[in-house]
Write a protein that binds this DNA or RNA. Structure first.
Length: 669
RNA sequence: GGGCUCGUGGCGCAGUUGGUCUAGCGCGCCUGCCUGUCACGCAGGAGGUCGCGGGUUCAAGUCCCGUCGGGCCCGCCA
């Protein structure tokens, strides 16, 4: 027999069940654990589907048993043998045959139960009992799920015999084992740096350095499989909806807008660089101009900005664009896509359609445009009430055009001085100068600043924030942006800290009606709120000439549980309007020609109205897996500083390589 | 660019105001014994430049400065 055919498996390690007992099987896998009892050796063999216990017994095969002595964790094995039902262990006690009826209806009488605890207190049965009939009227398997024990029960001449069980209720394959007659040790392994099992407590950098070991863990395999299923569900859905998957260049033009580009030097053109795409934005619009009608791509995107827990230097978007489409068309397709992905890949039911929330309302109620709506504690404006209070911190802020807003934290009356100091430091990171607070007690209001307010003012605050006795109200007075940042983040912080979030919920929400421009105070000019090609609503389009700040865009974001998971817009398809945008943003005709010349030309050759969106695959998988870190759902992520912990990229290159690229490195810079 | 935080055998951690620290514990690892375990058990054993460099001191895991690496955040991310 050739080596190749000898290691061919008949099943995966998660496949075998009691119904397979008696058959031959051959498995490949890694050794999770070896238990050597001197005479008999048990090995838990693992592959990506699960674990099967394999047994080496000298009475089955002396040679295999002798070989198994050398097996250690993470050795790679091929084992061949017979699948067998796990046999009863030690006889524990005998019982009267009449207890058969208990077993038949699966409901054990107190008398029968007490026989177990009488035999030994460690056999005391919990409420979590399951009875499986193996042979009608003859053999049963009793599982105590809570205590993780099983019992074999057999009908004998004298009544019932209760044996210690050898079934492992924790394993899907726990009712069988493979009695090995032939063992091939395909490879040995060094002792792994950490055990290959779930719920390990290991520093992330260690896991990343040994990612090939880390990814063997069942939870990680589950993530990889779910990510695959999500991409597959997306492909199938987009195909069914008539979209063509088209690849766009990875080496493209650098555009100074937006994020920093990742640059690639050109060998043929010294001093010139390709940029990796931040998104295939321009190409997908070109595809609409090209008559593709409906395009999608599972596209890798690159943005050379500092990372966060939910951001990575390179990430994956389900890039989508469609012609002759408006806002509702894109939202409808996207909703169907989300439903398909979450239900098919994540097993998470999704209700359609999603709610739509205007941008300004989201900012007002939650302090950001990606609200986590799984809990309340919304921001409430008290500027009108506080305008004539005695607290100068509030009144001065209001006089200079600021706001006073508040939230109420349930149970916050119990917060200590230190708790509140910590929260004050927390909001300080968002540039809030202070955090005013008033506790609502059974006898009224309590705080050092109560004296500055009338009872009526505090009662209005209580009413608007919804604070009840036992709660605390937090106030921030500052410029609107600071108030939103500080209170919005405080809300999230307290929501987590006070356990107000139901982690089984998925709250999808469209954010719509964004402004088209943002006023940049430092540079005294408008800049695009999203990007240069975002279209305006028909109603506000005339304001482009008179009051650009009031123009509303046709941009939309899809938010779920506080994460932005999709972002898109209806695009500008008329060159005259595109030109107007350039004018408002003070982009000179020369700049336009240099940077977008090809794009403007293309616009003029018959561009259909079109719109698109880009769901972020990484964040979607992160949500479905209930992870808070994007690195958990990327097979080989980079560290916060952009290093690959496995390959150590980026690396130094040879002088010859630099020479070819006409590049000189100033290492001191 | 900035703030906070972590770095001690393979892994997770302890190590008080600098002085029995000749650095301790659990897991893992190695050897031996053990035929029904599944976190097997029992007995014995090995394994540490305290991230790195410098400084203060009679004395540094401990204090100071710098540096490298991990994480969270601000800025940044159209």
């Amino acid at each position: 027999m050739s080596q190749e055919s000898s290691i061919k498996r008949t099943h995966y390690c998660g496949d075998l069940r009691l119904t397979d007992a008696g058959n031959a099987a051959q498995l490949n896998g890694w050794v999770k654990r070896r238990r050597d009892h001197g005479g008999v050796i048990f090995v838990d063999l693992r592959d990506r589907t699960g674990i099967t216990q394999v047994v080496f017994d000298p009475q089955i095969d002396e040679e295999a048993h002798a070989l198994a002595d050398a097996i250690r964790s993470e050795y790679v094995l091929n084992v061949k043998g017979t699948i067998r039902e796990r046999e009863p262990g030690e006889l524990l006690f005998q019982a009267d045959a009449t207890y058969q009826t208990d077993l038949a209806n699966g409901n054990l009488s107190a008398a029968f139960r007490s026989l177990f605890s009488d035999a030994d207190t460690k056999y005391t049965l919990s409420e979590e009992i399951e009875v499986a009939t193996r042979v009608q009227g003859e053999r049963w398997l009793l599982t105590d799920g809570e205590n993780n024990r099983t019992y074999h029960i057999e009908r004998t001449e004298n009544g019932l015999s209760i044996y210690q069980g050898t079934v492992n209720p924790e394993l899907d394959t726990g009712e069988i084992e493979l009695a090995v007659d032939t063992l091939y040790i395909l490879n040995s392994a060094q002792t792994p740096p950490f055990p290959v099992e779930d719920d390990i407590d290991v520093a992330e950098d260690i896991r990343m350095r040994y990612r090939f070991v880390d990814l063997r863990r069942p939870e990680m395999q589950k993530t990889l499989a779910m990510r695959h299923k999500a991409a597959l569900a997306a492909r199938n859905y987009m195909n069914e909806q008539g979209f063509l998957e088209i690849e766009t260049p990875i080496l493209m033009n650098s555009t100074p807008e937006g994020a920093r580009d990742v640059l690639v030097p050109s060998r043929h053109y010294p001093g010139r660089f390709y940029a990796l795409p931040q998104s295939p934005q321009q190409f997908k619009q070109i595809l609409m101009m090209s008559g593709v009608d409906r395009y999608f791509q599972i596209a890798r995107c690159f943005r050379d900005e500092d990372t966060r827990a939910d951001r990575q230097l390179e990430f994956t978007q389900l890039d989508i664009e469609m012609s002759f489409a408006g806002v509702d068309d894109v939202l409808e397709v996207t909703e169907g896509l989300m439903k398909r992905i979450f239900e098919e890949a994540g097993g998470i039911p999704v209700q359609l359609p999603f709610l739509r929330l205007p941008y300004h309302e989201s900012m007002a109620r939650f302090g950001n445009d990606k609200p986590d709506t799984r809990f309340g504690m919304e921001l409430t404006d008290l500027s009108d009430v506080m305008a004539d209070c005695e607290f100068q911190v509030f009144t001065r802020t209001l006089e200079s055009g600021g706001q006073v807003k508040a939230i109420a934290a349930p149970g916050g009356e119990a917060f200590s001085r230190k708790d509140i100091d910590d929260l004050t430091n927390f909001v300080a990171t968002y540039r809030a100068k202070g955090l005013a607070w008033v506790k609502v007690t059974a006898d009224g209001f309590s705080s050092g600043i109560v004296k500055f307010f009338t009872t009526e003012q505090l009662e209005t605050a209580q009413e608007r924030t919804g604070a009840k006795p036992g709660d605390i109200m937090f106030f921030v007075a500052d410029k609107p942006k600071v108030v939103a940042d500080a209170l919005g983040n405080l809300r999230l912080h307290l929501g987590k800290k006070l356990n107000l979030i139901d982690h089984s919920r998925y709250n999808f929400l469209w954010i719509v009606d964004y402004p088209l421009f943002d006023w940049n105070e430092d540079e005294n000019r408008y800049e695009p709120f999203h990007h240069l090609f975002t279209g305006a609503t028909a109603e506000t389009l005339p304001l482009l000439d008179t009051d650009p700040g009031k123009v509303q865009s046709q941009h939309y974001d899809l938010v779920c549980n506080g994460y932005e998971i999709c972002s898109g817009s209806v695009r500008i398809h008329r060159s005259d309007i595109q030109q107007k945008i350039f004018d408002i943003l003070s982009i000179t005709p020369e700049e336009v020609k240099n940077r977008f010349g090809y794009f403007i030309d293309a616009l003029a050759y018959g561009t259909p109205p079109h719109a698109g969106i880009a769901p972020g695959l990484d964040r979607i998988v992160m949500l479905m897996r209930n992870e808070e870190n994007i690195r958990e759902v990327i097979a080989f992520p980079k560290s916060q500083q952009g290093l690959c912990p496995l390959t150590h990229a980026p690396s130094v290159v040879t002088d010859d390589q630099l020479e070819e690229l006409s590049i000189r490195v100033d290492a001191d810079h």
